[in-house]
């Protein structure tokens, strides 16, 4: 299938971009929750989204695989460019988008099925069933879970520990060979040791995937990401309604050592004490 000409967006300058947004905003009903976000997410890097709670960083993340479509009353304005298409173009099929742009959630959410069936689920949905066993093993290996579960593939995934479950969810996501993996506070329900293993895993996965991670943990962002976007909340004219705004987007080192915006500096220093 060829892409209709109008879908093409002029290529952007280097570094190679995985996703780009232009004037992106999200409404819940008539409340503008996230306003006017413009940024370019570099390919094969880890980009972290940080900011105070309620700043809309998770909402922003859910724009990239159109999960916001599933929330009644949510509406996205502006553009999200993936490769050379606008993800919110009428002709785009959100279901296909999600297959290319996978997501790992805050709480580990394995299906109440066996470990094997969890990883095989997406493969079966997308009819990638030749060499199913190999694909499942490969995904589990890349998620650093193979050694833990190779003897218990038929056991219920719910019997795994929280950290193992989250790695299983990562394996499930990468099994269908996405380009991009979105991670929505993937470690917030985990203990420090499990968190460390997920962070190590992210460094491994960076070679194959572009990773976008939302985190409330500043150390984690500083440790694990290459680029970082700082969002904050602004009270709008009406008073109590708050909206999320992008303050600063830069290489993580830059952002943490030489923040350009005083709000970023306050937030970072406040956090680090």
């Amino acid at each position: 299938m060829t892409v209709p000409a109008a879908l093409h967006v002029p290529p952007t300058e280097a570094p190679p971009t995985a996703l780009a947004t232009e004037g992106l905003g999200v409404y819940y009903g008539d409340w503008l929750a996230v306003d006017d976000i413009t940024l370019q997410v570099p390919r094969h890097h880890i980009t972290a989204f940080i900011g105070p709670s309620g700043c809309g960083k998770s909402t922003l993340l859910r724009c990239f695989n159109r999960m916001n479509d599933l929330i009644a009353g949510a509406r996205v304005v502006g553009r999200v460019t993936y490769g050379d298409v606008d993800l919110y173009d009428d002709r785009i099929d959100p279901v296909q988008v999600r297959r290319r742009i996978g997501m790992v959630f805050q709480r580990p959410n394995p299906f109440p099925k066996s470990v094997y069936d969890n990883v095989a689920y997406g493969l079966r949905v997308h009819a990638m069933t030749e060499d199913l066993d190999d694909r499942v093993e490969d995904a589990l290996r890349r998620a650093a879970l193979w050694d833990d579960v190779k003897g218990a593939l038929k056991k219920s995934a719910l019997a795994l520990s929280g950290g193992q479950q989250q790695r299983l969810c990562i394996a499930r996501t990468i099994a269908v060979e996405p380009d991009i993996v979105l991670m929505d506070e993937p470690c917030s329900a985990l203990d420090p040791i499990a968190t460390g293993r997920i962070e190590d895993l992210m460094q491994e996965l960076r070679r194959d995937y572009t990773i976008l991670i939302v985190t409330h943990n500043m150390q984690q962002a500083a440790r694990a990401s290459d680029y970082a976007a700082f969002l904050t909340t602004e009270v709008d004219g009406d008073g109590d309604r708050r909206r999320g705004k992008l303050v600063e987007f830069a290489a993580t080192n830059e952002l943490f050592t030489h923040p350009q915006d005083p709000r970023t500096e306050n937030y970072i220093t406040g956090r680090f004490g």
Binding site: L70, V95, R98, G102, M103, R107, N109, F111, G122, V176
Partner: peptide, 14 residues
């Protein structure tokens, strides 16, 4: 739980 619905949809399931 909605978590399970989201997990499936996020894999690109109809």
């Amino acid at each position: 739980p909605d978590d399970l619905r989201n997990a499936s949809l996020a894999l690109g399931t109809r």
